[in-house]
């Protein structure tokens, strides 16, 4: 994966345009409840945190899927809705909570980077979410956070 969603929490104003864009891209309706990116509002800290899948290397979701419905396409973990049986094992296996079951469709959903043009980044008015080269420092910082919760088997070699 050459590019990734890099999130700068300090720039987020909580407008939720990302959620609108994501849900519109994937469902054809404006529906933050079905967005694959969610903005958390920590009101008393004066902080908004956009949150979505980091396309982690461990790919817990992909590993556990009993029917191979989640594939790795150039680093992007993509759910094939036709194959997904809705067993939800990926939703408990993903330690980041970024794979979610949708009762409405009986399938799981997660960020698929919109096939290379993420709608959330395009919609963000403040560049709090940008789709950019993974070498950018912000992404490493974000990954570092992700690794804090890393439950991966640790390779010693």
């Amino acid at each position: 994966m050459d590019k990734a969603l890099v999130i700068d929490v300090g720039k987020c104003t909580g407008c939720r345009q990302c959620e609108l864009a994501c849900s519109y891209e994937h469902t054809g309706t404006f529906n933050p409840a079905r967005s694959r990116i969610a903005v958390f509002d920590f009101h008393e800290k004066g902080r908004f945190v956009p949150y979505t899948c980091t396309q982690c290397d461990q790919a817990w979701c992909q590993q556990v899927c009993p029917v191979g419905a989640i594939t790795n396409e150039d680093g992007v973990k993509v759910v094939d809705a036709a194959t997904c049986v809705g067993c939800k094992v990926c939703t408990i296996a993903c330690p980041f909570g970024t794979v979610n079951y949708e009762p409405a469709t009986g399938k799981v959903i997660k960020c698929d980077l919109c096939g290379g043009e993420p709608a959330c980044a395009a919609a963000c008015p403040t560049e709090a979410i940008v789709f950019t080269d993974v070498s950018v420092q912000g992404f490493e910082k974000m990954r570092a956070w992700a690794e804090k919760t890393d439950t991966a088997p640790q390779a010693n070699a």
Binding site: G10, T13, G14, C15, R16, Q17, L20, G46, R47, F48, P125, T126
Partner: peptide, 13 residues
Amino acid sequence: LVRNAGCFGCTIA
């Protein structure tokens, strides 16, 4: 001032 904030969908904030 801690920060600026937007209402739902607002690109002004």
